[in-house]
């Protein structure tokens, strides 16, 4: 791993999600749960204890009929980089059970290291982290569908979206065997990206100009990785979380709903965070 780091510039995997394309069908959620061995209970209607690594929120413009407009916003883990890898959750974990990879930009979660203090959940403003309040139980026979590439999680630990990290590991092995220096764009895609029937999710290396996600987002490293695309924004950008999930919309109210603004502030223009 260290060897590769020396020869390859670091990657920064990220997403661009076009909210104007998202229909809110939920295929990304289903694909994610199925791919990542996320358990289910008979009643999942209490969304405060229902594990959905990617969750689709429904936003409205707040106007009354017939001017109401809605927008669906899929929210995976935002894989915050913060300032130099100081993401809100990684910095607070007392047992080093979650880590920011400078090689891939992915925020990991080590289930067997987590002892369930839930400080990371308190730190995450996106509610992207979920606690296993119960031991996972699969109905008889259904454990056959489990993916052997993803470890199921035991009761009492925190879990979250990993950008399907096991797929990265497999793609990396394959690339190595093929004699390729880098993982090709198509070889590593998340389950939600592939499942989206509208093609609303684009996934890839934000550092690599050949990747579609880079071309869409055009991150500006001199401006805290803000996107140069006028349609793009990030969730709660002004907190300084420096996320790697970018959202796109041509609707001003949607872009404004992505962050907290004071009444006089215009969308997309905020002062820099204090820290």
């Amino acid at each position: 791993m260290k060897h590769e780091q020396q020869h390859n510039p670091p990657m920064k995997y990220g997403m661009a999600i076009d909210l104007d394309k998202c229909t809110g069908c939920g295929a990304c959620m289903v694909a994610c749960m199925s791919e990542n061995n996320v358990p289910f209970k008979t009643d999942e209607s209490n969304k405060l204890d229902s594990i959905t690594w990617i969750r689709v929120y429904k936003l409205t413009n707040g106007k009354s009929f017939p001017d109401t407009d809605i927008c669906y916003l899929p929210r995976p883990c935002q894989h915050c980089e913060g300032h130099g890898g100081h993401s809100p959750c990684v910095s607070v974990c007392p047992a080093t059970a979650t880590d920011y990879s400078h090689e891939t930009g992915i925020v990991s979660q080590i289930y067997t290291r987590c002892f369930g203090c839930r400080y990371c959940m308190a730190a995450c403003p996106y509610h992207a982290r979920y606690f296993n309040w119960w031991d996972p139980v699969w109905p008889d026979g259904m454990e056959k569908y489990l993916s052997p590439n993803v470890s199921p999680r035991m009761r009492g630990v925190v879990e979250k979206c990993s950008f399907c990290f096991h797929r990265y590991q497999q793609a990396k092995n394959k690339a190595y065997l093929n004699g390729e220096r880098r993982v090709p764009e198509a070889a590593y895609q998340t389950a939600c990206t592939q499942a989206c029937p509208a093609g609303a999710i684009v996934f890839g290396d934000l550092n690599n100009p050949e990747h579609k996600v880079h071309q869409i987002v055009q991150p500006d490293p001199h401006n805290g990785n803000r996107s140069k695309n006028p349609r793009a924004f990030r969730l709660l950008e002004r907190l300084g979380t420096n996320t790697k999930v970018y959202y796109l919309s041509s609707r001003e109210w949607v872009r404004r709903a992505g962050d907290n603004y004071l009444a006089h502030e215009t969308t997309g223009h905020v002062s820099k965070p204090h820290h």
Partner: peptide, 26 residues
């Protein structure tokens, strides 16, 4: 609803999990 199968086969567990708490609650 895109998240609810209305045919003779109902939602599978993962699909029903995606249904909002403003559609079914308990």
């Amino acid at each position: 609803s895109l998240r609810i199968s209305s045919g003779y086969i109902g939602d599978a567990p993962f699909m029903i999990k995606t249904v909002a708490d403003t559609v079914i609650k308990g």
